[in-house]
Design a protein around this nucleic acid. Sequence first.
DNA 1: TTGAAAGCGCTAACAT
DNA 2: ATGTTAGCGCTTTCAA
Lengths: 318, 318
Amino acid sequence: MAVTIRDVARASGVHVSTVSRTFSAPHLVNAETRTRVLAVADDLGYRPNRAARALTTGRTHNLGLIVADIANPFFSSLIKAAQAQARLRDYHVFVADTDEDPQVEEELIQAFAKQVDGVLLCGPRLANSTIERLGEQVPLVVVNRRVNDLPTVLMDVGRGARQAIEHLVALGHRRIALVTGPSGSWTSKEMQAAATAGEADVVFLGPNPPTELGGRSAVTDVIASGATGVLAYNDLVAIGLMEGLAERDTQVPRDISVIGVDDILPGRFGSPRLTTIAMPTAAAGRMAVDMLLNPVAPGVTTLETSLVVRESTAEARR
Amino acid sequence: MAVTIRDVARASGVHVSTVSRTFSAPHLVNAETRTRVLAVADDLGYRPNRAARALTTGRTHNLGLIVADIANPFFSSLIKAAQAQARLRDYHVFVADTDEDPQVEEELIQAFAKQVDGVLLCGPRLANSTIERLGEQVPLVVVNRRVNDLPTVLMDVGRGARQAIEHLVALGHRRIALVTGPSGSWTSKEMQAAATAGEADVVFLGPNPPTELGGRSAVTDVIASGATGVLAYNDLVAIGLMEGLAERDTQVPRDISVIGVDDILPGRFGSPRLTTIAMPTAAAGRMAVDMLLNPVAPGVTTLETSLVVRESTAEARR
DNA sequence: TTGAAAGCGCTAACAT
DNA sequence: ATGTTAGCGCTTTCAA
């Protein structure tokens, strides 16, 4: 068995509670004693058992992080930042992937509930009411989704979408298609709301899976819609769309302009390089962890997005 | 406070040990009793506290997964698969990012040791001896690195590199550059070994960070080397290299052929689309989890790679 | 088949 | 400043 607090106590001739204090409340222990205990502990290779500690303190020093798809660069960069931020505060993070399945999402939250001090929900697909109910079992912070009474980090896609559409309009596009995302997606709804609010003639095509395949499967509808400008749910969809378009001898941006969302790596190297709405994923990850660790009044923090114009958008042909 | 085993016991009129058995050894409890306890538990929303369970059983039902860079698609797809496989067996997984820092890597393993039943080390940068020592504290499975006496999952990059070089040679390239990776990287060493073993005239350029920037910074050396064919440490490096080459008016594949490793998304959409060695990351993730959960004699499982020829390689100009 | 009791590693009053 | 004690939620002998 591993070395416990008791081994350290014995070896350093003090009581276990003194050893405990040495680690969790050092100022309550005599400097000399502390030094000795620390030396012995180090010698024996002692490390406090967090699970045992959690049992008494109620704080696990663990966080849960739930995303729809770990392999999606949007999420993985968020995970990276969140995990780094958590580590700074000596927290470990469980990462789980729902595969876009709300059912799995709920199970995961339940499963994490007892084992973590809080859960980060990134772009959840669950119903608001379900999320609120689960929020009573474990502290939740939600990213990219508005849920009443829960601390929230939002990336302002609505504004991004507005900019994107204005950009297309300024290029002379009269008919614009919005290739929407999964039905449960807040981001997708925000984009639709922004599109509806504007002056432009926007047709909605979807829902679609938030993947390259989702984009490919929308190709026929896009062409049929007669749109010359397209805003896609995300870069993956935009890329799939461009590939599909290329196979149908429709050139981007000559025949159709395409804009994505996320600013992931593939879009930067594609041909043409993708115009996109850059999302502050790393900042969102850090912010969400901070909100979880410094429990704060439920409220919304909104992070700015920015339109990155590259080569997939051009003037509409007349 | 959350509902505990005791609440369930009281509400169903049995002793806690019976409730415990209902969950961890159902066959030892009367069918009727079991049904009743289960009903009550469900009613109360009881879920066993894994941490408390771990304290007595010694099994946490958690796994640790350590990678150099979560945002690297190579790793994120491995994480996705490993996490899914773990979940099938009712395991949760901690994910952590070392940012390529061996020091951090060691700290992470130590920190996880008490809290998990095993750790997956993906492409560790630590010295073999250190890894072996840590392997005494917690079960380890290593991916893409050969460490004595530790269960290992390898992807056969050596063979892949050989194929890649043969491919270049077949295209008429006489002088080939190998843009190597970080100095601690097993993969990089394997590639070098494979290159040395062959007949071709291969010059090594590196070490380099395994990133786009690493590729860009190698551009000058590549041009100076006079090589017409390049095998890069990974796709990211290859992409950075191609970008840098483009800025120096060197065209790929007309002037220089480039091959990457990993087959990540950006390479598939780039221009030109990248010839690469595809790595079985998902299979490796699943396999590693299986090895961790069905403790097996230390041994090596080797997974095949495959050369994917696309547009970044062409005949050498004469 | 079920209950009683001890104990996993640790912390947190309470005493001293 | 340090020791004593009880107990966190659960499992696991051992008895009944």
